[in-house]
Design a protein around this nucleic acid. Sequence first.
DNA 1: CGGCTATACAACCAAGCAGTTGTGCAAACA
DNA 2: TGTTTGCACAACTGCTTGGTTGTATAGCCG
Lengths: 118, 118
Amino acid sequence: MPVVEDDLSLVFAALADPTRRAILERLASGEATVNQLAEPFAMTQQAVSKHLKVLERARLITRTRTAQSRPCVLEAERLEEAAGWIARHRQMWADRHDRLAEHLAALRSHDHDEETDG
Amino acid sequence: MPVVEDDLSLVFAALADPTRRAILERLASGEATVNQLAEPFAMTQQAVSKHLKVLERARLITRTRTAQSRPCVLEAERLEEAAGWIARHRQMWADRHDRLAEHLAALRSHDHDEETDG
DNA sequence: CGGCTATACAACCAAGCAGTTGTGCAAACA
DNA sequence: TGTTTGCACAACTGCTTGGTTGTATAGCCG
């Protein structure tokens, strides 16, 4: 197991939990304190605090320090990275499927093909 | 901890590992057998097999049964789901940031800053 | 000052994961 | 037929995680 995990893994891992995704969704409509976030989740404040740590480590949120509360705000940049990876591979896979279809079509029209690779 | 995890969590969790992402990348250039996939990864065939199980469970790949080998092929649809979630929220966050910027600009134009800096 | 509020830290636990070794089994090959 | 190849299953290990309770800290209120 990676002692140091790459950013992408951290982001995906952070997104791989329904609670955390819900937190992000809630946060999308504005800042919130830990206790505000904890309320709808049927879990303790400490548990939410841990989730926030995960999100923070993935830099999906940042936290500000105002008096005795530490509200959370979203950080969209990390999401770009994840989106980028997916988009890239989605394209590659689509290409691959296209080429596969082409290839099959080519094979079909050629009747027989000798593969002399260079 | 979810006894039954939703599809989205499975997909993100599957993507949250560099080895599995590398497997997907390799798979993007064509089918491969377990041993072929295992080679570059400095880990045993069994470990790769486990990773493939994770990918299969997330339905990011499917496996075909030909004779004694069980090659893997990519399944792009699941990726769409993950891409969709991210895209949706990216947009929401962007909107939010825009509004925040507007808000701050509005505040600034009001010239109501009482900062006691040192 | 005392007490309330908001949060974090620590210890603990059950479960899961990523990896290992060892083994079994089905298909191809000699 | 026996051997090799390709893969999976099982058991085990160490680390991580998601949750708990209990406690500590920092700021506000009276």
